[in-house]
Amino acid sequence: MSIASHNESVSPIGVGDYAAGPAEYFALLKPRVMSLVIWTALAGLLVAPTHVHPVIAVASILAIAVGAGAAGALNMWWDADIDALMARTRLRPIPAGLIDPREALFFGLTLSFLAVLTLAAAANLLAAALLAFTIFFYVAIYTMWLKRSTPQNIVIGGAAGALPPVVGYAVATGSVTLDSLILFAIIFVWTPPHFWALALVKSGDYARAGIPMMPNVKGADRTRLEILIYTLVLVPLGILPWRMGIGGDLYAAVAIAAGAGMAFMAMRVFRIREGSRASKAAMQLFAFSILYLFLLFSALVVEHGFGLIERFGL
């Protein structure tokens, strides 16, 4: 069996006529993940100490967004068989029978190629190579290998989600520096508590699909402990950009306040272990973690995008 025919035998749940419109193809790009990628890449681009022409900035962010979307499409192509088994994902375009798996594969490959090419033309080869590596890491290392083989899947795989600010920074400077690596580290350490909070609630789904998520392999209690540990590492790490001068006072206030919120919620997940209150606490942490990351990078975008740091010495 060739790799291109992977998942061709998955029986569609829904209509099954493969008559997808643009909306279904857009859904293949995982637009919610893409929006976070756009935001973190933009922050990486703006914190760089060099000026970027607005046209180059827009073209680069667009290329990074499309590259992330392409990785999402390739992820959905490979995972269609397990997506069909989980309530959360069974209505995605491929298991719903709206898009043929082979079309999703070629859609993802085409967009990946165009995104990397566009970034190479608009910015530089390092940024393009980093984007290509991000797509490769997400699809080949995380999706095809780690996701189904180890409970550390999202820990290591989190590197792919953490790379967009590094790519954004490379667009502006043509280099990778400690500044961009700190932004990488924040998202990398943020990923486990974010996904494991969801996995605590959806462990039945993951068990049905045979995905070795932390709660299924090591148990809910161990997962709660690891969520707490990662969060306690994350909070000071989130404040580090302020100490390093990447973020100003606005960033510091946001990082401290939102970090306190993350620590509080992770503590609640650790303490409340039984019944619907436990699920509620986990889902609240999951939702808040998205807000946390959004707020941190928004503070950087606001400070650097509107020149607050330079103008007011914040």
């Binding site: 046209v55 165009l114 033309a121």
Partner: peptide, 12 residues
């Protein structure tokens, strides 16, 4: 995409 590459070319 064509418009984007045109704009990139002009800028660069």
């Amino acid at each position: 995409l064509a418009a984007l590459f045109y704009a990139i070319t002009i800028v660069k």
